[in-house]
């Protein structure tokens, strides 16, 4: 990456892509594919699906580059596309969006005789992963977007197509819901 590219903001790079400098999308990919993939993994609970969706997001950025606006925010636009791609994925899958079945965890916690498995179930990440899976998809989505530090609440509200106040209320309600499930799972998995 040369110094000139390093100095260009996301917005400037996307404007360059829009104006025909397609290589600039490579730089945007390098900057954003990691956090985008992380968001999609947490949203879908499925690594393969998250990769497919991330790929589709960048495809659409290229395809719809003519619609990117001068006054836009690249991150907000990208996550707006990601949300729509994820919705398409869930519609196509037409199945439970989360790979981890919460019932499996219960079964493990109650029945597994192996200490290693019990330890894994008690692992905070695994518990939270399962708790996220039990949330409604809309709640999971708003919570993940709200905790995504690169987005302001105004941008989150823009992505969710609601007011800033409504986005904050929805995010907090989702957090309380997650807290209840998470703590309940902790109690259930105590030895």
């Amino acid at each position: 990456m040369d110094a000139a590219t390093e100095q260009r903001s996301d917005h400037a790079l996307m404007l360059a892509v829009r104006d025909g400098e397609l290589d600039a999308l490579g730089e945007l990919f390098e900057r954003h594919h990691g956090p985008l993939f992380g968001f999609l993994v947490k949203l879908t609970g499925d690594h393969a699906a998250a990769e497919d969706i991330a790929q589709t997001v960048f495809q659409r950025m290229l395809k719809y580059r003519h619609t990117y606006r001068n006054d836009g925010s690249l991150t907000a636009w990208m996550y707006h596309l990601a949300r729509r791609c994820a919705a398409d994925h869930f519609r196509k899958a037409n199945a439970a969006p989360y790979a981890t079945d919460p019932e499996d965890l219960q079964a493990h916690a109650d029945d597994s005789p192996h200490a290693a498995e019990r330890a894994a179930v008690r692992d905070d990440h695994a518990l939270l992963h399962t708790a996220l899976g039990r949330l409604d998809r809309d709640d999971r989505e708003v919570l993940l977007l709200a905790r995504f530090q690169e987005l302001s609440f105004a941008e989150v509200a823009g992505i969710l197509e609601c007011s800033v106040g409504a986005a904050k209320v929805r995010a907090h309600r989702a957090l309380r819901e997650l807290r209840d499930i998470y703590f309940q799972l902790q109690k259930e998995t105590l030895p």
Binding site: P35, F37, Q55, L128, R179, Y182
Partner: peptide, 27 residues
């Protein structure tokens, strides 16, 4: 606060090299 801390501490998994390969092929 504890729930949020756990959420923030969740590791971000890395994608396989397939994502980068497919992206640059598409580009």
């Amino acid at each position: 606060s504890q729930t949020l801390a756990a959420l923030d501490a969740m590791p971000n998994p890395a994608p396989t090299p397939r994502l980068r390969q497919n992206f640059y092929a598409m580009l």
